[in-house]
């Protein structure tokens, strides 16, 4: 009985740990915080699993991960909005000298990564859920708990902000 529940959880939920971890990395921007939040989310998901009937297990699990990340941030008060992202992008940028085209592509990618990182969390989450994890608007609406219309407008505004940031980089170079 107990093990049937564990087995079902293993089959339906655990395959999405990579997606869960990816979302947590983008939301919390710290690998240790992300690990702790995902572990917390997995245990919660397991405890509430009896309540999961149908629907997409990935979206169901990502909703819990997202809420755990929110709670985690509130509890630890570590808002690092203003810290520019990703040393690896910076390193990538610095290390490159191979060719101008390549350098330009890389600096563009780094600029987009910075722009995504600088987005307010409610914009960043829709970008990751849509552009990286490929969720539908209805699924995103379920994960973040807002109407589909709000998902649509947040995604649209987030893309415009990133486009604007990219435009500035291109003009500057």
């Amino acid at each position: 009985m107990v093990s049937a529940q564990v087995e079902r959880f293993e089959t339906l939920i655990l395959p999405h740990l990579d997606d869960a971890y990816t979302l947590a990395r983008y939301l919390l921007r710290d690998e240790h915080d992300a690990q702790d939040a995902v572990q917390d989310a997995a245990l919660r998901a397991f405890r509430f699993f009896g309540g999961f009937r149908d629907g997409d297990p990935r979206a169901w699990f990502l909703a819990i991960v997202r809420n755990c990340c929110r709670t985690w941030q509130r509890r630890h008060r570590r808002d690092r909005l203003s810290i520019p992202l990703a040393d690896d992008h910076a390193a990538e940028l610095a290390a490159d000298s191979a060719s101008d085209t390549l350098a330009m592509e890389r600096s563009e990618r780094a600029a987009i990564a910075r722009a995504i990182d600088a987005l307010p969390p409610e914009f960043r989450e829709v970008i990751v859920l849509r552009e990286l994890q490929g969720l539908s608007y209805a699924e995103i609406s379920g994960v973040i708990g807002v109407p589909v219309g709000t998902v649509m407008s947040r995604l649209s505004r987030a893309r415009r902000r990133i486009a604007a940031a990219l435009g500035q980089t291109l003009e500057a170079s």
Binding site: D18, Y26, R109, A113, V128, E131, L166
Partner: peptide, 8 residues
């Protein structure tokens, strides 16, 4: 471009 920049 966003999709190219995001990494799983």
């Amino acid at each position: 471009r966003i999709q190219e920049s995001l990494v799983p």
